[in-house]
């Protein structure tokens, strides 16, 4: 997994609550056995019509958002299915940061495992980014080391993240490798346990 320390990117506002993982990537694309190549299917039913043509009225299709890497969404983003194909699709499309007032538990875990930073801001903070994104194109710099979000005009806010999660993301750590260092403890546990 690629480490993430400081990221600057274009913001894309998706002003919807309860965006479920079926919307992030519909089930017909879950049949593949690879981890790569899911970006083309991101938000598929919103981006494309039944014939596979782009919908004009879904904002992510607008050329001005080309290269966006910071998604701002409404509360409970990533609810529903546990499919890790959702963060795989977001990442493959180019998103590295997702900002929302809240995330579904499994989705949030899945993001960390893939080096996507999911940031929880207050409803007010998120909405203010949303409104700004709907008015103008703007970039944000996310600094995971200092746990801050800032724009080019000097505006800055802190965000909260668990130290453990931050370490994992900053260093792009292989969690299984870390756990296997505790193998003796796992074996001992198994012995003491029927």
């Amino acid at each position: 997994m690629e480490p993430i320390r400081i990221h600057k990117g274009l913001v894309y506002p998706l002003n919807r609550s309860n965006v479920d993982t079926d919307q992030i990537i519909p089930k017909q694309f879950l049949k593949r056995i690879e981890r790569q190549g899911f970006g083309q299917f991101l938000f598929y039913d919103w981006r494309f019509d039944q014939e596979g043509n782009l919908h004009d009225d879904f904002s992510l299709n607008a050329s001005k958002y080309e290269g966006t890497s910071i998604l701002v969404a409404g509360e409970n983003f990533g609810c529903g299915s546990s499919r890790e194909h959702a963060p795989w699709a977001l990442q493959d499309f180019g998103f590295k940061i997702v900002i929302a007032p809240s995330f579904a538990d499994i989705f949030k875990n899945n993001c960390v495992k893939n080096g996507i930073l999911a940031i929880e801001l207050s409803e007010e903070q998120t909405q203010s980014l949303m409104k700004r994104g709907e008015k103008e194109l703007f970039h944000l710099t996310i600094n995971l080391e200092s746990k801050t979000i800032e724009d080019s005009d000097g505006w800055q806010i802190p965000f909260h993240i668990l130290d453990y999660t931050r370490e994992m993301l900053l260093n792009g750590l292989d969690e299984i490798g870390i756990t296997l260092l505790h193998e003796e403890k796992i074996s001992q546990f198994e012995l003491s346990y029927s």
Partner: peptide, 21 residues
Amino acid sequence: AFGIGTSEVEHVLATQTLWQA
């Protein structure tokens, strides 16, 4: 009993454990 993503599936296959708060 709870649902997990594929990275966690791999973690459980390899270690029979999960890091969970």
